[in-house]
Design a protein around this nucleic acid. Structure first.
Lengths: 299, 299
DNA sequence: TCAATAGTGTCTATTAGACAGTATACC
DNA sequence: GGTATACTGTCTAATAGACACTATTGA
């Protein structure tokens, strides 16, 4: 408890004489990948609307990357947690409050920001598109939802003498009205016979600021990985939803069609039927469900 | 490109006049959870040695938490990536080089460090216990491998009006020779009808410095989650190993026994038989295998 | 009626779990 | 031969995938 260090100081004495600014330190920011699944306009009165994955971007009004699109974010203040900073920035820039946030990754490349050494912790946030009216933050910055399409455009694997090298090139396309942004990210796995190393490189960043295309790509990947094993999708759903809507959300995120009967079997343990139904749809009405996790009994 | 901001500056002019130290900034550190699976002394010449999960801890010689055990780590310098800082600290404190590192999580609670506002990015590192002789870093600090045991000692779930609350209390026991450290961490999931929130609280930290018991608990959890879907275990194995050794590593990490025949079926696609065998074992010799991932054919 | 979607039943293929059996070394 | 581990075969249960069928609304 009252142990002294090599200079004969107690912990209290040490702390009060400690100068945290003695060394040059990196700065810390947060960036938020705010995702949702939302409807397109319906083609005809009878058909169900198509859905797509969307991300919120903000047009930068300041240097650096002035005029380019970026993820919402900003500096972490000395007296707030990183998560609190994420909530604050999201509210300041988009008026969105109290939503689901999950830490994604911390990016720390030395020259990822032209302003200097800035480390950024990225968060992924999922929202129900109906619950939010995101536009025009305090700074009168332009915020816009971009449709996200992600595809693998190239893949190669080479056996090396000791191990292998694998490169996968992802192309991300972002669309909002007339604006189209395209970025390419190469994800590589290199096995040297001893350890596997993972690397991400931005090959083309389009009109996206900083390394934000890489952050977005990681978010999409993480989302895909988690949707099948966890219940995160429900953060993107309204309180009441049809199973077809839920299925469409899965399909948009996984980017592949699913079979109805099998899908329903798989998610049955997470939803609860209500006695509400849709109506005026031009076809058979469907039951509305709500998210309700059942306790998993241990063996 | 040459766009001017509201003050009429170009990007170059803005950057050169930008003072990153204008605001009070958090400091950044790294902490490394270095894990391995290693043998106990064998009971008899015939029996195979038992294995256990071990973590490397360092006894602090400085304030704060002087005399307590901590994960290796330190400040991130202005000119190195976070990962580079992790490698550097690991080498300085333990002489371990070129091993597998994976980013775990970034901890940013405001008062997690008595020296001031310090954000820490935690890494998980996996090593083969045979390849390293970790002891006595440059600072003549005491480094020691602790056996890790993790168990759930309490679990409760309550339905609330809108959702539920779930608390799981994990007890971590660390043992190295005569030293025993015990910590308790509560992991809670709270669903308020709209979003699920995850929280971790250190209930008892034993003799562990900072929030390091929480970091360790997260590492063990992550390890368990990844071992069944990825090939990370192989970072803990020597180049050549028997399938029984590999199975023991899985068993130690998952903390449950596995059936041999089924285990072999499951890992078959990641290993390659060699023409080496063990000998002088007092029983039937076993084939030695090496890690060799097969390409997964896409549908 | 029909267009369009809602919802269910069931066959099959694949994977996971359990267990029993045979094989091979060294003392 | 005995002990201790190595290695394999196969039965069964559970899960995933595919597909076909019936149901119900509004225009």
């Amino acid at each position: 408890m009252g142990q002294l260090d090599r200079n004969g100081l107690t912990e209290e004495q040490f702390i009060s004489s400690y100068d945290i600014k003695a060394y040059e330190q990196p700065s810390v920011t947060v960036d938020i990948v705010l995702l949702t699944v939302s409807d397109h306009e319906a083609d005809s009165y009878r058909k169900l609307p198509e859905k797509s994955l969307r991300v919120l971007l903000i047009k930068r009004k300041e240097h650096p990357y002035i005029g380019k699109w970026a993820l919402p974010g900003g500096f972490v203040r000395i007296d707030e947690t990183i998560e609190a900073a994420a909530y604050r920035e999201l509210e300041e820039e988009t008026n969105i409050e109290g939503i689901y946030l999950e830490q994604l990754y911390t990016f720390g490349d030395v020259s990822r920001d032209p302003r200097g050494r800035i480390i950024s912790t990225a968060y992924m946030s999922l929202v129900d598109s109906g619950s939010i009216i995101a536009k025009a933050g305090t700074d009168a910055e332009e915020a816009r939802w971009f449709e996200v399409k992600s595809e693998v455009i190239r893949e190669d694997r080479v056996k090396t003498t000791e191990g292998f090298e694998e490169n996968v090139c992802h192309k991300i396309t972002l669309e909002a009205e007339e604006t189209v942004l395209e970025a390419e990210i190469i994800v590589s796995r290199i096995f040297d016979g001893k350890k596997i190393e993972y690397k991400r490189i931005v090959k083309e960043s389009g009109q996206l600021a900083f390394d934000h295309s890489m952050i977005l790509q990681l978010a999409v990947e993480r989302m895909r990985g988690k949707i099948e094993h966890t219940d995160i999708v429900f953060h993107m759903m309204p309180e009441l939803f049809t199973l077809t809507e839920l299925q469409k959300a899965y399909e948009v995120i996984l980017d592949k069609p699913l079979l109805k009967a099998n899908f329903r079997r798989k998610i049955a343990h997470m939803v609860q039927e209500t006695d509400h139904k849709t109506s005026d749809a031009g076809h058979r009405p469907s039951k509305l469900f709500r998210f309700e996790p059942r306790w998993i009994d241990k063996k």
